[in-house]
Simulated scan of single mutants.
Amino acid sequence: MVNPGIQGLAADSPTRVQSSQTARTRGGPQEYAVAREAEVFAMTEALKLQDSIPEVAATSLIGVIAKLEMIVGADRDIGDPTDFPWPHIASVLRDLKAIAGSLPAHRRSRARTRSDVTKHWESAVKLVAALQEEGEAEYRGDVTVF
């Protein structure tokens, strides 16, 4: 896996992916571009879900635990998870689990995962094709820029 150049998705500096990395991918540069865009679509969907959590009211202790699990899990994107309030939130989560129990184990089905991958891949194929078409049109001088 390479650094996609999106801060927060990679631990190292936010730099653009080098063209030599594209050459090492199976299928060539177009398939690599599609895979990168599909990854962006998937991450965007996950972030939208994460952003919607504050509007969802928990109706049980298990619901509160689920929300805190999501918050604690998201702390991987922050600079230092040992800074306030992250250890405190993790402590509250441990206390709640000790009182109410942990969340039941859940694993998505392979069919659901494949369906999501297909959806993001198809969106990415359309985007890359449109960008290539736009680039070719600009090269021919067919596009009017407003």
Rank of each mutant, 00 (worst) to 15 (best):
D80V: 01
E45D: 14
E55Q: 10
L49I: 14
D12F: 05
R36M: 14
W86S: 00
A66W: 03
G79A: 13
H106K: 14
L96P: 02
Q132P: 06
L47V: 14
F146H: 11
R16N: 06
I71E: 02
R108T: 05
G141S: 05
G141P: 08
S91W: 05
Q7T: 11
G28E: 03
A46C: 08
P81M: 02
G135A: 15
E133T: 12
T118W: 12
I53A: 07
P104A: 11
V17G: 00
F146C: 05
L96R: 01
A57W: 00
Q21Y: 06
G73E: 02
R112G: 07
E134T: 15
A57S: 13
L68N: 07
A98G: 08
T44Q: 13
D51G: 13
T15L: 08
P104M: 02
G141K: 05
A58K: 07
E133N: 12
T144H: 12
Y32L: 06
I65A: 09
P54Q: 05
G141T: 06
G101T: 01
M1N: 13
R108K: 12
A98K: 03
R112C: 07
I62V: 00
K67V: 07
I65T: 12
P104R: 12
R94N: 12
M1A: 15
G135S: 14
Q30Y: 10
S91G: 11
T118R: 15
P29D: 13
A42T: 08
L103M: 15
A100M: 01
N3Q: 10
T25L: 13
T44A: 10
V56T: 09
S20P: 00
S123T: 00
A58R: 08
A46E: 11
A11W: 01
L61H: 07
A33P: 02
D116A: 11
D83K: 00
S109A: 13
Q18Y: 01
V56E: 06
L96G: 03
E37R: 15
R114D: 09
E69Y: 04
A66H: 08
L47G: 04
E136G: 11
V40H: 13
L96E: 01
K48W: 01
A35N: 11
F146K: 11
Q132V: 14
K97C: 04
T44W: 02
